[in-house]
């Protein structure tokens, strides 16, 4: 389940009760992320603390959200990603596309 909160004009999105972003749930996640991001909500943080696996379908949903945020004049940054998750970003050649932070606070202050 996706959970979102707004702190200082930045929207923080986290995943409760989910360990993977993959082909089983990517379509739904993509739709939910798109629904959350718009011109008024374009500075986004994706908190990946609970996520331990992302496949190419899951990355498709994240890229879609990044594009939506950028089109709306904002950005999408990543916090609390595990070493395994960052390795998956690297394998998908996406480690240079996103900014990573080891805490929500640091990520928030980067905006």
């Amino acid at each position: 389940m996706i959970h979102s909160k707004k702190v200082n004009n930045v929207t923080i999105i986290s995943f409760n009760g989910m360990e993977s972003l993959d082909a089983q749930n990517a379509f739904r996640i993509k739709g939910e992320l798109k629904g959350l991001i718009n011109e008024k909500v374009s500075k986004v943080i994706l908190d990946l603390e609970n996520i331990n696996f992302i496949d190419s379908s899951g990355f498709g949903a994240i890229i879609s959200a990044l594009k939506t945020a950028k089109r709306a004049g904002g950005n999408l940054k990543i916090c609390n990603a595990s070493e395994n998750t960052i390795e998956l970003f690297r394998l998908m050649s996406l480690d240079s596309v996103f900014e990573f932070f080891d805490s929500e606070e640091k990520c928030q202050s980067s905006y």
Binding site: D55, S56, F59, G60, I63, L88, R90, L91, M92
Partner: peptide, 18 residues
């Protein structure tokens, strides 16, 4: 250009890196 990222077609590319 990174801006032209595709949302799909990453599976086989990631396998090749491993």
């Amino acid at each position: 250009e990174i801006a032209k990222l595709l949302e799909s077609n990453r599976g086989l590319l990631s396998m090749l890196k491993i």
